[in-house]
Simulated scan of single mutants.
Amino acid sequence: MKRLFDIFASAIGLILLSPVILIVAFLIRRKLGSPVLFRQVRPGIHGKPFDMIKFRTMRDAIDDQGNPLPDAERMTPFGSFLRSSSLDELPELWNVFKGDMSLVGPRPLLMQYLPLYSAEQYRRHEVKPGVTGWAQVNGRNSLEWDEKFKLDIWYVDNRSFILDLRILLATVKKVLIRDGISHENNATMEAFKGSQDK
């Protein structure tokens, strides 16, 4: 039932939101240049890699050694708007339609985090990653890593179709009030450096 709902809802979303997607793509191309889409390999269910797609929100800016500048220096006001409004997440509906992701589940993090998890934290990969999730509607990037992982595992243990609907409705509210977009003192979430419970 969850997969059928994902297919139906993502297809309807892609169709209904296609004018918004096209406008955002045009504005990104004009303000940030190309590529319009940001692609990155992320771990899916059981840690299996997949290509996640989002709208680009940062400019290409490097230091004298060719290394990317910190996120805060590459983020533009337009990119911040895309993130705070969650418009940058719209292309992930294609990942949901393909089956790489679900509408609801733990957010897909970085591949380099996989060996850093404790056995309990790794359980977040027992389900497909989601566009939104229990942690996102209970603090999002304002949470500390341990809090976020506990919420992810709670979802894994208590997931249901009704809970997914509750999370989706709560996500709409969170997006409208733009709550929990950034972590304190960081433009984006601070990098995960490993579990203390390994």
Rank of each mutant, 00 (worst) to 15 (best):
E144A: 07
P108A: 02
P108I: 08
N95M: 01
S80C: 01
A61T: 14
D51R: 11
S86A: 08
T132F: 01
D157I: 04
Y122W: 14
E147L: 11
A119I: 15
P68H: 12
R83A: 01
E144F: 11
L114E: 08
K98W: 10
E147Y: 06
Y113I: 05
Q121F: 07
A119N: 09
L165F: 13
M111A: 10
V127P: 03
G139T: 04
G105L: 13
M111N: 12
R123G: 08
N158D: 04
E126T: 00
R59F: 00
H46P: 08
G99N: 06
M58S: 14
F149K: 02
P70N: 07
H125K: 02
E144L: 12
R74T: 15
D71T: 14
K98I: 00
L93P: 10
W154E: 10
L93N: 09
E147M: 07
F78V: 06
K150T: 02
P91I: 00
G139V: 08
L82M: 11
M52A: 06
N158S: 01
R59V: 15
P70C: 15
D60Y: 02
M111Y: 06
P70T: 01
W94Q: 14
G99Y: 04
Q65W: 00
P106F: 10
V137Y: 05
D60E: 07
I162A: 15
I62W: 09
I153P: 07
F55Q: 06
E144V: 12
M52W: 05
M75I: 00
F97I: 13
A135G: 06
N67C: 11
F78H: 07
H125D: 07
H125F: 13
W154K: 13
G66F: 08
Y155P: 05
V104G: 13
A135Y: 04
I62E: 05
P49V: 08
P108R: 13
D64L: 13
L82S: 05
N67Y: 00
V96P: 06
A72C: 07
G139P: 01
